[in-house]
Every structure is written in structure tokens, then in C-alpha cells.
């Protein structure tokens, strides 16, 4: 199955990004395709290259980054939501790209299922 994933909350404050990551990873391991992960609302903060969590905990940003590296997953950050929150090209961790909300709608059209993570 072809999945689109929407991440609606920032890292650490909320479980949403972790759950989305675990879902994406499991889906890929089961042979499914992750067409795109779209980061919206505070979810754009998952893309910051300035995040440095304590080393004895998971690294949410690096988890996404590695997923993109290992499986060429398309990680898209909403430009408008990012601008509001200080996430711009120069603050992106490797593996993420900035684009418009059209990329989310398009994922909804192209994917068999669009799954949203957040409240």
C-alpha cells in the first residue's frame, strides 16, 4: 500500500512525531511505500538542525533524517507554517525539504491512505 503521512505536532512535547516515525518505519519494513511525510503546524519543528537532545534519549530529528537516507523517504516541511516558526532553508536538517501545502493535498490524492498524527 502507498501511504502518505502527516505530522501535526513538534518533537518531544508530543508523541505524534515518534508515532509517525514508528509507523513509517514499520510500513517500509513490511514492504509498503511511504509516498511522502508532510510536516505541518508545530510539526515543522521536527525538521530543525539545531535540535540536540540528551544523548541517552532518542533523537527525533535524526530518526527522520536516517529514514530519509536509508529509504529515500520524501520529507516535506510546509513553507508557510515553517516561516511562522523560524523553520527556513538554512535551519533544515539534511533529508528535509521545504515546499507548499499543495504537496500535502497531492499526497492525499496519490496515496492509498493519508494518515495524520496529532490530536
Amino acid at each position: 500500500m502507498k501511504f502518505g503521512i502527516l505530522v501535526n505536532e513538534g518533537p518531544y512535547n508530543h508523541q505524534a512525531s515518534d508515532s509517525a516515525y514508528q509507523f513509517a518505519k514499520a510500513a517500509i519494513e513490511k514492504g509498503h511505500e511511504v509516498y511522502r511525510v508532510f510536516f505541518y503546524y508545530d510539526g515543522v519543528l521536527n525538521a530543525t538542525r539545531f535540535s540536540e537532545p540528551p544523548t541517552d534519549d532518542r533523537n527525533v530529528v535524526k530518526n527522520w533524517q536516517k529514514l530519509a537516507e536509508d529509504h529515500k523517504v520524501d520529507l516535506v516541511v510546509c513553507v508557510a507554517a515553517g516561516l511562522r516558526r523560524g523553520i527556513v532553508e538554512s535551519s533544515l536538517a539534511p533529508g528535509f525539504r521545504i515546499s507548499g501545502l499543495g504537496q500535502l493535498i497531492e499526497a492525499g490524492i496519490q496515496a492509498d491512505r493519508l494518515i495524520a498524527f496529532g490530536d
Binding site: Y40, A80, G100, L101, G102, L104, I105
Partner: peptide, 11 residues
């Protein structure tokens, strides 16, 4: 903002 963008996709 999502709703307005979706209008451009004729959905």
C-alpha cells in the same frame, strides 16, 4: 490555509 490550497486541486 489547507482548505484554500485544496481548492486549487479541483477536489
Amino acid at each position: 490555509e489547507m482548505v484554500l490550497i485544496s481548492a486549487a486541486f479541483d477536489q
